[in-house]
Amino acid sequence: MSENGKPKFAMYWAASCGGCEIAVLNIHEKILDFDANFEVAFWPVAMDAKYKDVEALEDGEILLTLFNGGIRNDENEHIAKLLRQKSQIMVAFGSCANEGCIPGLANLSPIESLFETVYNTVSTENEEGIRPQSSYEMPEGTIHIPEMYPVLRTLDQVIDVDYYMPGCPPESHQVAAVVDLVISVVKGEAVLPPKGTVIGAGNSTVCDECERTRNVKKIKKFVRIQDIERFDPEICLLEQGLICNGPATLSGCMAKCPTSGAPCVGCYGPGPRVLDYGARMVAALASVIDSRDPVEIEAILDGIVDPAGTFYKFNLAHSLLKTGKASWNGN
């Protein structure tokens, strides 16, 4: 509790793009309610703060921390552990913290190959072949940058997490609802859900919120959205051969993408009973391929470009697979 009597709040940005931070600000005037009820203890993207300020706090002094981003280097891990120690409620906020998200797809490649891609492309001027190093001797002394880990881990693979709030980023109406809930809890008007609950999401999959007409599925050909001139505005996208991940994806986004004609990419992560998201989608799609001829089946499957990037785009780091073998061996 701060001097003004308001509970303390923290938000941190680890291995992620920053969209989650924008999503919080995107709750518009509700941010004023938030400000009225919370004291910001640590929120680097919004106001200046130093790690030593956090270190100086009592354990558990922060009431609520929204942690976005996965754990890719020792700095991410250090701050995650520090904030866990200082916070009463730790929320894995957004897809990266929950399931690794797109940074997690890098788990398919060892670090050397990632560096090779980033620092040695045709368009990169790097004649001396410079690579990042965690420490470097300067005339003024040794300087350090964070050490990159062989694989990205999700927040709950590193620290104990109280609640999970999915989405890439979480939808603003869901953020607003969670903010409202926490304020009511602070005021003593509501109680927190059980630890481990997924908050700010539905209890089914995206199809439940999608208004497209659905029929029995039979897929003769997979297409990408740029491959077709016109698709039916009323019918389920999957039935039209577009790979829509809606059937396996947790609901809560109000099916915005499929409703407006873009297939679901799965940013809300696995549905409530889905253990391995990619495996579920692969099994589901394989089941509805409309052919018994092995050659034709092979041709239909060739229509799935980049299966890992399609079915594990958001959750590779939290799937049963977790990483590619090469990066795991480096771990």
């Binding site: 039979k218 009973r273 509805v288």
Partner: peptide, 15 residues
């Protein structure tokens, strides 16, 4: 089928 979790995607219907 868990009615609560079924979203009616109809993947299973013809299998």
């Amino acid at each position: 089928v868990s009615e609560e979790n079924c979203s009616g995607c109809r993947i299973c219907n013809d299998l």
